[in-house]
Design a binder for these strands. Structure first.
Lengths: 289, 289
DNA sequence: GTTCCGCATGAATCGATAG
DNA sequence: ACTATCGATTCATGCGGAA
């Protein structure tokens, strides 16, 4: 089994050590802009683009021509307004040479609760797709889920869902015929992903669920390809990458996080054998059949 | 019953005839770039911002200080890339004085079918919320939805008689858990809207379903308030507005669309002749002076 | 083994309070 | 005045213990 390459340091510096055109997929969720100036590593919204551009320049260099860069990000509210630094970042990255190919939406089914007089809960994040070339590797069939478990579960619940339709209509005015779109739901994915913030493992709280990098790794890489996460954090991307038989490179600036990820990959902790996952996948395939 | 005010002409010009601070909600879906080429001089993506800014300037003027502007838009793919004109528009509108308060996502559950080698189906559109003021009118209770937990897991087990029985249990001191969820039947929605592209519309295939303007009209206006659609098109916003007891103003540049909307209102509302509108515009110009 | 219930827990946001 | 900190608000989800 491959071992992940883990680097401790500022990714802006570490990336410079990496060769050109060597990475198939970059999947990362950088620290979002923060208002608190005293926080370690906190980047204020007005400095965000300036801070990120040198990094994205290196990412552009190390990415293979057919590779893809997926950037998970969401601007926060500052004084009642959404910050525009993400919009500015997209525009500036294009000037750097990136192609802004697509914007996926991650619909967070269980977003953070709260109530405010002028705002609803924020239930989505951006997954910005950047490429070097118009022709990039994309393995669509890997994520085209056939009508199996998932769809059957939805249909099984249909009658129950239908029962509440009338009540929903009365209360909210949202009462359209739910069965209509449930029946028409097909298995081809769109650019909207519906995931709860936690999917499988509730070991330690990650920024995003494992399903999220898993989906993009399936879509944009094959076995043996190289996946880079320059903001490794708790290592979700690396762990998923390794489990999926891809080669993982992770960079993390905070020693606490770095050591944690390192230990999770050390022999005594790697209780999660690859065979288990393969067996599980096989079982799932059998189920669908 | 109120009559909708329908204007035939370029909204950039027509809007100039309207008084300041007179509209509670602007809800519109302007022609996207590269569409309706013969209209508005054929807007290409690189000219889009330049074209829209004079219009948004007028919209800023006619909107009440506590009003809201909802802009339904989505950038098209041009040569394999998402165009950036929407991003640039947001940034430029802020310079005009607009506050970019929020970005809602319209998740199109039954989006246009198709398959491409390097792209999935586009299943979402932006609903950009702009305001003049940090304090704007918002009637959140009008759009509350049944709580997921309550609707999907609890209610199905209870018939109406069961509910009553359990309530009496509560009163007598037993079923504490029941009273718990009865109090929490409704939840506030998020900034992700799940609507099919067709809801109730029978005849004309509109750009958006009636549910879409309906939701925002409920959220940002009360009965008797004024709703403006400067790009009326087939008139979905106007029709919904009138039905909901709000006052509708619609502007359309294409005579075919204008007449179509006019006719849809004709037996019930006896649409005013164009001459009346022109005369009224003149009067309003005098007023502004 | 199921199913059900209670409970902790979030890439949140606002408004009030304190320095 | 301006900025950092804190409490209140809120709800989908997963986990653990109980029936």
């Amino acid at each position: 089994m491959n071992k992940p390459k883990l680097y401790l340091g500022d990714c802006k510096d570490v990336l410079k050590q990496m060769p050109d055109n060597s990475v198939d997929l970059i999947f990362t969720s950088p620290p979002y802009a923060d208002q608190r100036k005293t926080t370690y590593g906190g980047i204020t919204p007005d400095k965000y683009v300036e801070w990120f551009l040198p990094i994205s320049k290196q990412l552009l260099r190390v990415l293979k021509p057919e590779g893809t860069f997926i950037l998970n990000i969401k601007e926060k509210v500052v004084q009642g307004e959404r910050s525009t630094y993400v919009l500015e970042l997209i525009i500036e990255m294009r000037k750097q040479g990136w192609l802004w190919t697509e914007e996926f939406i991650w619909h967070k089914k269980n977003c953070y609760p709260g109530k405010w007089p002028n705002r609803f809960r924020d239930a989505w994040e951006r997954l910005l797709q950047f490429n070097k070339n118009r022709n990039f590797n994309m393995y669509q069939e890997a994520v085209m889920i056939p009508m199996g478990d998932w769809a059957q579960n939805r249909l099984r619940n249909l009658s129950e869902t239908d029962k509440i339709r009338d009540i929903s209509k009365t209360i909210s005015g949202f009462g359209k015929n739910i069965s209509h779109w449930l029946k028409r739901e097909n298995a081809y994915p769109t650019n909207v992903l519906h995931l709860a913030t936690e999917c499988n493992n509730k070991k330690h709280s990650a920024v995003f669920p494992e399903c999220l990098p898993e989906w993009f790794i399936k879509l944009f890489t094959q076995e043996g390809d190289v996946v880079l996460d320059p903001f490794m954090g708790s290592g979700t991307t690396c762990i998923v990458t390794q489990r999926m038989g891809r080669k993982s490179i992770g960079i993390e600036i905070l020693p606490e996080y770095f050591k944690m990820v390192q230990e999770s990959f050390s022999p005594k902790y790697s209780v999660l054998p690859l065979a288990w996952d393969i067996e599980r996948q096989t079982l799932q395939v059998t189920k669908i059949k």
